[in-house]
Structures are given as C-alpha cells and as structure tokens.
Simulated assay, not measured.
Amino acid sequence: MQSLPKTLAEDVAKNLVMVARLIDEDPEGAYGYSKVALRLASRVAAVREAAGFAAYANQKYGEALAEFRAARRMTGNTELWPVMADCERGLGRPEKALDMAGAPEVHKLDKAGQVEMRLVAAGARRDMGQLDAAIVTLQSPELASNAVQPWTARLRYAYADALLAAGRQGEAREWFAKAVEADKDGSTDASDRLAELDGVEFVDALDENEDEDVSGEEQAPAGPGEGDKE
C-alpha cells in the first residue's frame, strides 16, 4: 500500500476494511468491495489476497486460487498454501490437494498453518471416500493435546465428524464433547451435533407460544354481535 499515492491508498484501504467487515455475514457484499479494490490496485499483494478470500467465501474457487497464486508470487510467502489446497478440493481435485499437503512448502508453515493443512488433507481423503485415512490424518500431537489453541475446536470437530461418518458413534460423541469444551466463541456447531447424538430436541419457544395463542383463539367463544361482523 505504501507504493500507492495517498488518496488512492486511502480508497483501497476503505474497500479492504469493508471486505474484512462483511466477509462472514455478507460474502457477496465483501466480494463486491474486493472487486473495487482490485480495480484500483491489482499490483498490491494485500488486495489480491483479500480478493482471494472474498471469492473463496463465495465458493468461486477457481477465481480464489488465481488470486492466492498472484499474492504468493508477489510476496513469496507460503501462508496461503492450505487455502490454495482447499480451493483445489473445491474445484473437484482432491488428489491435487493431497499432493500439496506433501509438498516442501508445508514445512515452512507455522503451527496454525500446518494444522490447517492437516484439516484440508483429511477433507481431501474424505472427498475420495477414504474415511479411515482421513481419521488417521487428523490424529496428531495437536489433537491429543489438552491445551486449547485457536485451531483446537475445529480440529476436534473434524475428527469427531470423520469418526461419525465411519460409524464410530461412541468415539464421535466423545470428540464432539471435547470440541464443545474448546469452542469458546461458537465457531462450530459442535454443541448441536452433540445434542443430536444424545437425542435432544430443541423447541422454538416463540413458535410454541404462537401455537398456544392460535389454540386459545380457536377455543374462545364469540362475543355479543361478533357473528354478524363481516
């Protein structure tokens, strides 16, 4: 951004802020702002990266992959390697994602990036119908650790989900419970999955009250003269 004229840099920054603000709740809106930033400063790595994440959030995996590759060429960083591999999954190429999981670039990732790569590789195994291999892929020191890290809930959740898909319901329940323990910000629906396994059904209190109101109206006797109203 420092290479841009001040006014242009400010305009680009405003659009990038909107991308970050909207990407979770309004992916389409974030995508629109990313395209504006891209038109203004396509030679800025941060802009290409933001455009990649906006496209990724909208399941435009081919476009996202192109933007991530461009950002990586500009910076030389490997931190986008896992999400690039996940784009290959989105494009129906799990074998390519697995190739990337075994590439030298993975060793250059920090711990969070390596865990993310493991999640992508397990997902690729599941895409290929290799459930047992997916389970083994997720078994790691990070999974076994009692320490809660930013990735812990998602890692435990993925492991529980893979176990459940393999018919190992008892183990799956145990790991969904562990995911709930680590999921302080509700980033997964582990609590719902756990309740489902335990046979718990949730009733919407608002709907229940509405049903009671309707029932009450049907049973209430007509007042004087009400039968003559049109």
Score class of each variant (00 low, 15 high):
residue 190 A to H: 03
residue 194 L to F: 03
residue 187 S to L: 07
residue 214 V to K: 13
residue 184 K to E: 04
residue 180 V to L: 06
residue 174 E to G: 02
residue 191 S to E: 12
residue 187 S to M: 08
residue 174 E to T: 10
residue 174 E to I: 05
residue 217 E to C: 10
residue 198 D to Q: 14
residue 183 D to C: 00
residue 191 S to Y: 06
residue 209 N to D: 08
residue 196 E to S: 13
residue 195 A to Y: 02
residue 216 G to D: 10
residue 202 F to H: 15
residue 185 D to G: 04
residue 212 E to R: 15
residue 186 G to N: 07
residue 190 A to C: 01
residue 180 V to C: 00
residue 174 E to W: 02
residue 173 R to D: 02
residue 218 E to C: 06
residue 172 A to W: 01
residue 189 D to G: 08
residue 217 E to T: 12
residue 218 E to F: 11
residue 201 E to C: 07
residue 193 R to G: 00
residue 206 L to S: 11
residue 216 G to C: 01
residue 194 L to W: 02
residue 200 V to L: 06
residue 176 F to L: 04
residue 197 L to H: 10
residue 198 D to P: 01
residue 196 E to I: 06
residue 184 K to I: 11
residue 200 V to F: 03
residue 215 S to F: 02
residue 185 D to S: 15
residue 218 E to P: 04
residue 188 T to H: 01
residue 207 D to T: 14
residue 182 A to Y: 05
residue 191 S to I: 14
residue 172 A to L: 01
residue 218 E to M: 14
residue 187 S to A: 11
residue 208 E to C: 02
residue 213 D to R: 11
residue 198 D to K: 05
residue 184 K to Q: 11
residue 206 L to M: 05
residue 210 E to F: 12
residue 185 D to R: 14
residue 201 E to V: 15
residue 177 A to W: 01
residue 202 F to E: 15
residue 201 E to W: 03
residue 181 E to C: 00
residue 195 A to K: 14
residue 190 A to F: 08
residue 208 E to V: 07
residue 188 T to V: 02
residue 214 V to D: 13
residue 202 F to K: 15
residue 198 D to G: 02
residue 187 S to V: 15
residue 212 E to P: 04
residue 174 E to M: 04
residue 200 V to N: 00
residue 175 W to P: 06
residue 197 L to D: 08
residue 200 V to E: 00
residue 217 E to V: 08
residue 210 E to L: 14
residue 194 L to S: 02
residue 213 D to A: 12
residue 206 L to F: 12
residue 211 D to P: 02
residue 189 D to P: 09
residue 196 E to F: 09
residue 205 A to S: 12
residue 189 D to V: 14
residue 182 A to K: 04
residue 191 S to Q: 13
residue 191 S to L: 07
residue 179 A to Y: 07
residue 180 V to T: 03
residue 173 R to N: 00
residue 174 E to V: 08
residue 175 W to Y: 11
residue 180 V to P: 00
residue 182 A to Q: 06
residue 192 D to F: 13
residue 213 D to I: 15
residue 192 D to T: 13
residue 178 K to N: 06
residue 216 G to T: 08
residue 192 D to N: 13
residue 203 V to M: 03
residue 192 D to A: 15
